[in-house]
Design a protein around this nucleic acid. Structure first.
Length: 420
RNA sequence: GUGAGCGUAGCUCAGCUGGUUAGAGCACCGGUCUGUGGAACCGGGGGUCGUGGGUUCAAGUCCCAUCGCUCACCCCA
């Protein structure tokens, strides 16, 4: 049997209902904030991510699904959404739109990791980007929006961790400090971290390897926050002040680093307390240099992404139900075999005002009602010789038991009136 | 990529220390039931026991390998 590829899943039933609930919540709140939806391709030229996300990141080094197309171009299934959105911003000259431009999106992302709870190879994110503004207000706006989306879904066990990774110059000073501090003890670091010492020392802070953690504690390595320049520090404080004013609870996490190189200044994650190892529901940050990394003019930006599957897991852990998919309005039951075609015609005549389906085999009335119930229909319509002759249907409300024999037009009126 | 746990019907599982033709519940199909449902009862379809090899008179059960799933490491949404 051919099965879905490792780390991918068919989405249906309850899982899809959770999925839609998260996407629709994002749509509602993002559009409330004035954002326009964008759908970028799920694959891009590999360099979009190599240059955008960063050569030294785990995502680029070991998690991308890349392939060569027939023309010899290197393409990559998007591992995240922001780089593609900024590429689109540049490609469509959105810098001439009224600034800043607010965009939101939802769609699949791909990372070649070993699957586990809350981690799949194809997963889904919703995201929000504000491009063309450097003010701390938009950082706070973005954080507050993602926080409120999660709250609106009913989630309680949320923690917002806010940090700052500073400006590039601050990071250079910090990286120099880290190298100087850690290099004498390099042999005690994990293999990955020894490599990071050369390529990107800050990423060592992200390591959870016990030897790395011990060494960092023992050396009393100072956090990035101590190295913020004046501009970044003022920005960070302003963001905190705006968040307090908006009533968004957060804790400052001096160690927050983020796995994507394009982040500067604000950087945050939202965690849930009952998710297991992969506890981040979402994260984001400011990426003022990204446009230039992609070959564009300076264009400051800030944004976030939520992991749809993880939010769904968190909702389930808290016993929260998704918005259910709408069921059938009407199930048409032919009472005689020769009336099956008439049942199709009757059901088809209700589309699309009513969700109507019909039985392919003649049923006795009792069986027909039972079947309608199993199909999840609110109403059953019996079509027997009498109804056929009169051009009517005997329609029964399966909840109340109320029954009427009506013309198709009257059926529409009754049901639409009843469900309005 | 590393480690651990688990693979019996569409789903949830039973199958004792290896011993007839591998079972149950749910679901599905049909009947009891020729114009009114949610019940009950009866019947039916559906399994190469993940796969391959080995031990044995005999393997769903023991051993090895392999594949898959899950969780964890790593990292992140």
């Amino acid at each position: 049997m051919i099965r879905a590829v490792k780390g991918t899943h068919d989405l249906l039933g309850t899982a899809l209902a959770y999925h839609r609930t998260v996407v629709e919540a994002t749509r509602r709140w993002a559009e409330a904030a004035g954002a326009e939806e964008i759908a970028t391709p799920i694959f891009e030229h590999t360099e979009v991510f190599e240059r955008g996300v960063g050569q030294t990141t785990d995502i680029v080094q070991k998690e991308m699904f890349s392939f060569t197309d027939r023309g010899g171009r290197s393409l990559t299934l998007r591992p995240e959404g922001t780089a593609g959105v900024v590429r689109a911003y540049l490609e469509h000259g959105m810098k001439v739109w009224p600034q800043p431009v607010r965009l939101w999106y939802a769609g699949p992302m791909f990372r070649a990791e070993r699957p586990q709870k809350g981690r799949q190879r194809q997963f889904h994110q919703t995201g929000y980007e504000v491009i063309g503004a450097a003010e701390p207000e938009v950082d706070a706006e973005a954080v507050a929006l993602s926080w409120r989306i999660l709250e609106s879904l009913g989630l309680r066990g949320l923690t917002l961790k806010l940090g700052s990774v500073g400006d590039p110059a601050d990071r250079e000073r910090y990286n120099a400090y880290l190298r100087e501090r850690l290099e004498p003890h390099a042999e005690r670091l994990s293999e990955d971290s020894r490599r990071r010492l050369q390529t990107n020392p800050m990423r060592i802070l992200d390591s959870k390897a016990p030897p790395d953690r011990e060494l960092l504690t023992e050396l009393r390595v100072r956090p990035m926050l101590d190295f913020l320049g004046d501009a970044a520090r003022q920005h960070f404080e302003a963001v905190q002040a705006r968040l307090r004013a908006l009533g968004v609870p957060f804790e400052v996490d001096p160690a927050i680093v983020r796995g994507l190189d394009y982040y500067v200044r604000s950087s945050w994650e939202i965690h849930h307390d009952r998710l297991g190892a992969q506890s981040a529901l979402g994260g984001g940050g400011r990426y003022d240099g990204l446009s230039e990394l992609l070959g564009g003019p300076p264009a400051p930006g800030v944004g976030w992404a939520l992991g749809v599957e993880r939010v769904a897991l968190a909702m389930q852990a808290e016993g929260l139900s998704p918005v259910p998919a709408p069921g059938l309005d009407l199930y048409v039951v032919p009472l005689e075999p020769e009336l099956v075609p008439r049942a199709l015609e009757a059901a088809a005549a209700f589309w699309p005002e009513l969700r109507a389906q019909y039985a392919l085999k003649a049923r006795k009335p009792g069986k027909g009602l039972q079947e309608a119930e199993k199909k999840g229909a609110r109403y059953a319509a019996l079509l027997g010789p009498d109804e056929a002759a009169a051009g009517k249907l005997t329609v029964k409300d399966l909840k109340t038991g109320e029954q009427r024999t009506l013309s198709p037009e009257e059926v529409k009126e009754w049901i639409r009136g009843g469900t309005a």
